[in-house]
Design a protein around this nucleic acid. Structure first.
Length: 294
DNA sequence: CGCTATGCCTGAAAGC
DNA sequence: TGCTTTCAGGCATAGC
């Protein structure tokens, strides 16, 4: 489910009730998600204060006063919601979920000193929660090879070109590769390629000129990636099947999809006149317009 | 029943 | 032989 804009939306929702708050109790309602919780997971979280809640790629990182970091991933169907137990004071700036639902897939509950209960729900259990020492975070196998943050000012056409140079894989597949650029998934790759008018089937290496110089297409693609992601964050992400904001409300960006899940609909590019098509690449649906995306 | 699904790790296969 | 790149398979569940 969640790509960078959804994870960032979740981060912004959780920050008011987690940052500066102490984790009073951790309830693990099953032994594993995608992989087992570490044996010392509860021990290392309980009593620790969250000093910052950050995001790297599609990972949420809760930095603790103890020098540990809680590494969280939402997988395909994970979501967080914030509950306010009866009698607990409301945290300024926090938005609470109206009521609990789908309790069967509530796998982790964090009771925070802010009074909020942070509940992780994940029907498919492709999500992940680990705790690692902060000084080992960058070298951690899950993060070591992750590429640049697309919304970082340092991510530019030169960076993208360097990552794409020599690649024969389709552009779609290259952009899904988290080592090329971090945080894009199936939706936002399709959206960014349409905005940049680039074919998902084009060989990735063709965005790089002689000597590794980025082409105008690479410049356009970087611009499109940044714009699509920023707009999606502003809209609270995209809610299809699973994504909710932490207060339970839906994201709104799905109403603004240019191509994703719009097979057969007219292309929105002014004057194009094409129709959105669906193909399968690397086993996943790609939506694009064969008329204006070259 | 069969197909699809916002992710991504693993391992096999292919290419050099 | 070995390294790198690419892709299919699988994970677990729900909805249509």
């Amino acid at each position: 489910m969640p790509e960078l804009p959804e994870v960032e939306t979740v981060r912004r929702g959780l920050a008011p009730v987690m940052e500066g708050a102490t984790i009073r109790a951790v309830e693990l309602r099953r032994p594993d998600l995608r992989r087992p919780f570490p044996n010392d997971f509860r021990l290392r979280l309980e009593g620790a204060t969250v000093t910052a809640l950050r995001r790297r790629a599609k990972y949420l990182l809760a930095e603790l006063s103890t020098g540990d970091v809680v590494l969280m991933h939402l997988g395909m169907s994970g979501s967080f919601r914030i509950e306010r137990p009866a009698g607990a004071a409301a945290v300024p700036g926090a938005y609470y979920h109206a009521r609990s639902e789908d309790l069967a897939h509530d796998h982790v509950v964090l009771a925070m000193s802010s009074g909020a209960r942070v509940v992780f729900n994940d029907p498919r259990r492709f999500g992940l929660m680990l705790v690692v020492a902060a000084d080992e975070l960058d070298a951690h196998p899950l993060l070591r090879a992750v590429g640049p943050e697309p919304l970082d000012p340092g991510f530019d056409a030169a960076k993208l070109a360097a990552a794409l140079a020599g690649k024969a894989a389709p552009l779609k597949a290259a952009l899904l590769d988290q080592t090329v650029v971090a945080g894009l998934g199936n939706i936002y790759v399709c959206e960014a390629l349409h905005l940049a008018r680039l074919s998902p089937r084009r060989r990735a290496g063709t965005l790089v000129g002689r000597g590794g110089v980025p082409t105008p297409r690479a410049v356009a693609l970087v611009e499109a990636i940044k714009m699509v992601l920023a707009d999606a964050i502003t809209a609270g992400g995209s809610s299809l099947r699973d994504h909710r904001q932490t207060d339970g409300t839906l994201g709104l960006f799905q109403h603004r999809f240019r191509v994703y899940d719009r097979e057969g609909a007219p292309c929105v590019t002014p004057g194009c006149g094409g129709v959105v098509r669906r193909i399968v690449q690397s086993g996943r649906s790609t939506f694009f317009c064969t008329v204006c995306q070259k």
